[in-house]
Structures are given as structure tokens and as C-alpha cells.
């Protein structure tokens, strides 16, 4: 388990974003930015994922999907809110169908600002998330270690 931060898997969910941030997340996977060189793989299965990337705000349609996905992920896990929409609701904050940022429904560990975020910023955010993941892992091990030994 100690090597989890060497090869974290991410799951990406598109909230009610404008796509601007989504395509930048996708751009991270492609040759110019290529986050696979950090061992990061994009997966569609929440059970496989360590990092939850969310773009776009939360609306009344996807709130349950986001909660479900978060709950299905196994500990330790971190949540990265990508883009201003995911951070606070952004320009759509006052829309009738938007509840606000991701932190309205699940705890967020890293906020990546920008509209649209730049791929470099996303990578930075993920790298920060790795630090938090490591802390959470150590914490979890301490708790479980005490019980096991």
C-alpha cells in the first residue's frame, strides 16, 4: 500500500461543467502533458480509483451520482475540484439549477482554480493531492495498525 502514491489512479466525473475543464483534463492524458508518465491512469471504476477529479458545479441531477461515486471509492481517497465551477459554482453560481461547488456535497482536499484550468494546473493539483493521499494513508495505517497488531 505504501506505493499507492507512486501510481495513483484517477476517476474523472463531469458535473454540470461547460466542457472547457473536461477537455483540459483529457488533454492531460495525451502526448503533450502525458500524466501517465507519473504512473497516473484514468479509470472509469470508482473502486479502482484513488483520486476523484470533478469538473463543473453540482446540480440537482448529479448530486447523487457524485455522492455515490465518492462513497464507492476505497480509503484513502482524495478529491480534487478542478476549475472555478467545481470550486464554488463559478460563473453559473446564480443559476437556478446549480447548488454550488463540489464541497456542498463531499469534502474537497484540493481546489484547482482557473476558468478554464490549464493542464499544468491540473497536474499541479494532482501532485498536491498525492501528498495528501500519503498523509491519509499514514493516518489510516496508524489506526488500522493499532487494531491489527
Amino acid at each position: 500500500m505504501a506505493n499507492i502514491t507512486k501510481s495513483p489512479w484517477i476517476i474523472h466525473y463531469d458535473g454540470s461543467s461547460c466542457n472547457g475543464c473536461d477537455i483540459e483534463v483529457l488533454a492531460c492524458l495525451t502526448p503533450l502533458y502525458d500524466i501517465e508518465r507519473f504512473g497516473i491512469i484514468n479509470t472509469g471504476n470508482p473502486k479502482h480509483a484513488d483520486i476523484f477529479l470533478i469538473t463543473g458545479g453540482i446540480n440537482y441531477q448529479n448530486v447523487d451520482i457524485v455522492k455515490n461515486t465518492y462513497e464507492q471509492m476505497v480509503d484513502p481517497k482524495v478529491v480534487v475540484a478542478v476549475g472555478i465551477c467545481a470550486t464554488s459554482g463559478g460563473v453559473f453560481r446564480e443559476c437556478y439549477n446549480i447548488m454550488g461547488g463540489v464541497n456542498e456535497v463531499i469534502p474537497v482536499d484540493v481546489y484547482v482554480p482557473g476558468c478554464a484550468v490549464r493542464p499544468e494546473a491540473i497536474i499541479d493539483g494532482v501532485v498536491q493531492a498525492l501528498g495528501i493521499l500519503e498523509e491519509k494513508r499514514a493516518q489510516l495505517e496508524k489506526e488500522q495498525g493499532g487494531a491489527k497488531k
Binding site: 446540480n59 440537482y60 441531477q61 437556478y96 439549477n97 447548488m99
Partner: peptide
């Protein structure tokens, strides 16, 4: 359309 408020 699924909206938070009916007929916005």
C-alpha cells in the same frame, strides 16, 4: 429537462 424548480 430535469430542473430543480418546476418550469423555471
Amino acid at each position: 429537462f430535469h430542473t430543480a424548480i418546476e418550469n423555471p
